[in-house]
Computed example of a mutant assay.
Amino acid sequence: MEEESWITHEEYLAAAELFRSAFPAFAAEVARVEIIRGKLNDFQLSRAVTMATDSIEILGWDSRRTVLAIFDVYVELYRGEGRLAADRWVEATFGAGLIYTESNESGMADPGLLARLAEIELEIGAREADLLELYRELTRLKTAASGTSVTSTADSEQLSDRWTLSPDHVTIKE
């Protein structure tokens, strides 16, 4: 049995304002995940709601419950009628959300743009790993070229009397 709760009109308006400020983060996450995986499942929706509510400062338990209840209505509409209907409900009810035009039915951001952003983030991560590996190889080659052996310490490696390799950088003594 659900617990019935009564809130004042002022509390509702405050919660609606919090919802309006959290909704863009929620909508962006929904759009991002839809581009990658299609319609969101319950876990993905819960995660998007959590991200959105974590992006705002909620002062009390009652306002948090009210904001979460508003998101629950959105989630139910999303599951039953789809994202477009749920977004239109937000626009009609709270005056917030996404404005749709004939040329852009996708919402807040172009799905192609969001997909490209995700691709670039993955590529940067992969290249960072490659650069780290190249850096390690460079260090090994410099060590071999200098004819010194590498001795490890707890925090850094002494490569020669001029170089020190720590987890973050190489120090060259002049």
Rank of each mutant, 00 (worst) to 15 (best):
E4I: 12
S5V: 08
W6P: 05
I7H: 05
E11Q: 14
Y12A: 12
A15W: 08
A16V: 04
A16K: 03
E17P: 14
L18F: 12
L18Q: 12
R20W: 01
A22W: 07
A22G: 07
F23S: 00
P24W: 02
A25F: 06
F26S: 01
A28N: 08
E29Q: 08
A31D: 04
R32I: 08
R32E: 10
E34S: 02
E34A: 02
E34W: 04
E34N: 05
I35K: 12
R37M: 15
K39Q: 09
N41P: 03
S46R: 14
V49I: 11
T50I: 13
A52Q: 04
D54P: 08
S55K: 07
I56L: 08
E57W: 02
L59G: 01
D62V: 05
L68A: 06
A69L: 13
A69M: 12
D72P: 10
D72L: 11
Y74H: 04
E76G: 09
L77H: 02
L77E: 07
L77G: 05
R79T: 06
R83D: 00
A85D: 02
D87R: 02
W89K: 04
V90R: 04
V90L: 04
E91R: 02
E91V: 01
A92M: 04
T93F: 01
A96S: 12
Y100S: 03
E102F: 00
S103M: 02
E105A: 01
S106L: 13
S106R: 12
G107Q: 01
M108N: 07
A109R: 14
D110C: 15
P111Q: 15
G112F: 14
L113V: 13
L114G: 02
L114P: 01
A115L: 13
A118F: 01
E121G: 03
L122I: 04
E123G: 06
E123T: 10
E123W: 09
R127D: 07
A129P: 01
L134R: 12
L134F: 08
L134V: 08
Y135S: 09
L138M: 15
L138P: 13
T139R: 11
R140E: 09
R140I: 06
K142L: 15
K142P: 14
T143N: 12
A144M: 15
T148N: 13
T148L: 13
A154I: 11
D155K: 10
S156N: 14
L159K: 05
D161W: 00
L165N: 10
L165K: 12
P167N: 07
V170P: 06
V170Y: 06
I172F: 08
E174M: 15
